[in-house]
């Protein structure tokens, strides 16, 4: 006997419910806009809430890992790498841990897909979509901003598009994911830390607003 993990709801009800959601930084969107700067010394910040995120655990090299990759249509990434693109991706979090990322609303279907693929093998998959929100930091000075908070080597020779890391920004644990060369980054942070992290980032961005 198994209690269904999620209650099946009809589509209309789901849409009503969706309108009741709030990203943890929703109320600061205008402030982010105001404190972002464009141009050659620009850097911009915004929230990308509600991304589907599943925490995937598999034994590396196992047949169940292979069938999960098949089912997702994406290879499981090498260490500190991301497979896929910014829409559908798998991020390496550890030797036996990955983060599946997809657009909003895909959690249930992806859970089913992965659980089916894991059937009979070892591993777990857990919906953590609401566990973290995502900040997008981009612009020519984005790396300069992160270098104030993060002790990793973010130089293009060491960290580029498709790289990710679980690391600290200041005193906050995040998943840092570089998307493109601009550079643009996604910073995935547990919701309770989001306000503090936003404060840290805006503080670090301030000198680029001086022009």
């Amino acid at each position: 006997m198994t209690v269904p993990h999620k209650v099946e709801t009809d589509t209309a009800a789901a849409e009503v419910a969706t309108a009741l959601r709030h990203g943890p930084l929703e109320h600061r969107a205008a402030e982010f806009e105001r404190r972002s700067a464009s141009g050659a010394r620009g850097v911009r910040l915004r929230e990308e809430p509600f991304l589907t995120q599943l925490d995937l655990r598999t034994s590396p090299g196992s047949s169940s890992a292979a069938s999960v990759a098949d089912a997702l249509g994406l290879p499981l990434p090498a260490a500190n790498r991301v497979s896929g693109d910014e829409h559908d991706a798998v991020l390496w979090l550890g030797p036996d841990e990955s983060l599946i990322v997809a657009p909003d609303g895909r959690a249930e279907s992806l859970l089913r897909t992965v659980r089916t693929a894991q059937q009979g093998g070892s591993g777990s998959v857990v919906d953590v979509s609401a566990n973290r929100t995502t900040l997008r930091l981009s612009g020519p000075m984005a790396r300069e901003v992160l270098e104030k908070l993060c002790s990793l080597d973010l130089h293009p020779r060491a960290f580029g598009p498709g790289d990710c890391a679980q690391t600290l920004l200041g005193r906050v644990v995040v998943v840092l994911w570089q998307l493109d060369h601009e550079p643009g980054y996604r910073i995935m942070v547990r919701c309770s830390f989001a306000e503090y992290l936003a404060d840290l980032l805006l503080d670090a961005m301030a000198e680029f607003l001086d022009g």
């Binding site: 709030h22 943890p24 109320h27 005193r171 906050v172 309770s192 830390f193 306000e195 503090y196 404060d199």
Partner: peptide, 18 residues
């Protein structure tokens, strides 16, 4: 560095905090 005042340490809040 910046870890003074408001930024001294993370303040964690729940979604109902406000």
């Amino acid at each position: 560095g910046r870890t003074r005042g408001e930024l001294y340490d993370p303040v964690r809040t729940t979604p109902m905090h406000h």
